[in-house]
């Protein structure tokens, strides 16, 4: 007789070889972690790097195929929007240059010296490819990277080096969900406790009567402060004593190609 249900006595416990295989893997990984924590990464790195470069080539090829089908009208609109954006950025740059000159003059007056040094790193993995708001870059111990060194892109601070290998490093972005850090609002000097929200976004909470406006810049305070994010939105309700502030990094982390590791 044909049955279309399972007989109760056919149920078996977990196969022994499955449990054994899983436990052997777990033990091996524990041992590897204890005695050679970066060994697995070092083994796969020679294979990974050429494949990452191949992926980048394939991605850029796909983009150029896509751009062939974009209409002229759309391109003209984009061009106009970009021209306006360049104009805005040029005026912002001018303002920043004057601030930088003023800062340099003040530092010289007070006898403080700023040492600038960094290591350039090619981004091998970035968010959407990696799940935890981490970057994998091709600069490691040999290139001078150290754990805790700040990582910037075009002057905007993004995160810190979390792990270093011989020729690679993992960077944990400050915007990783669950990360918290203290930043300062440029101008007012107000300290904010920023919470990472992923993909270059942050949130903070402040008393309702504190003045914060959109486009205010949050920096990591030090001798020459590092810009981190810009206030994108402020949400306040008359009935609540705190307001929510949402900040966004000006750097698009999904399009990152190069970063600089600031040497301490």
């Amino acid at each position: 007789m044909k049955t279309n249900y399972l007989l109760p006595n056919r149920r078996r416990s977990l196969p022994r070889r499955a449990l054994l295989a899983a436990l052997v893997f777990l033990l091996l990984l524990f041992l590897l972690e204890a005695f050679a924590p970066v060994a697995l990464f070092q083994i796969i790195r020679p294979v990974a790097e050429p494949l990452f470069r191949l992926r980048d080539i394939l991605n850029s090829g796909m983009q150029s195929v896509g751009s062939f089908f974009v209409s002229k009208h759309k391109l003209a609109g984009e061009n106009l929007a970009l021209e306006r954006r360049v104009e805005n950025l040029e005026s912002e740059l001018l303002a920043l240059q004057s601030v930088a000159e003023e800062e340099e003059r003040l530092l010289a007056e007070w006898g403080r010296k700023v040492t600038k040094g960094g290591v350039l790193g090619r981004v091998l993995l970035k968010p959407y490819q990696s799940p935890y708001d981490t970057l994998l870059i091709d600069a490691g111990v040999r290139e001078g990277a150290v754990v805790g060194a700040r990582v910037v892109s075009r002057g905007i601070v993004l995160g810190e080096v979390a792990e270093v290998y011989t020729h690679s490093s993992k960077v944990k972005l400050y915007s990783s969900p669950g990360e918290t850090l203290f930043a300062e609002l440029l101008g007012s000097g107000l300290t904010l406790e920023l919470k990472g929200k992923g993909a270059g976004n942050f949130s903070a909470s402040l008393p309702s009567d504190v003045a914060v406006k959109v486009n205010d810049i949050a920096v990591i305070p030090q001798l020459t402060s590092l810009p981190l994010a810009r206030v994108a939105a402020v949400e306040s309700k008359p009935t609540e004593s705190f307001k929510a502030i949402y900040l966004r990094s000006p750097v698009n982390i999904f399009e990152l190609q190069w970063v600089e590791i600031l040497l301490p």
Binding site: L29, F41, I44, L125, P131, L136
Partner: peptide
């Protein structure tokens, strides 16, 4: 799983 961890997790 171990390879994915080596690449992404910290």
């Amino acid at each position: 799983g171990a390879i994915l961890d080596a690449l992404y997790a910290s």
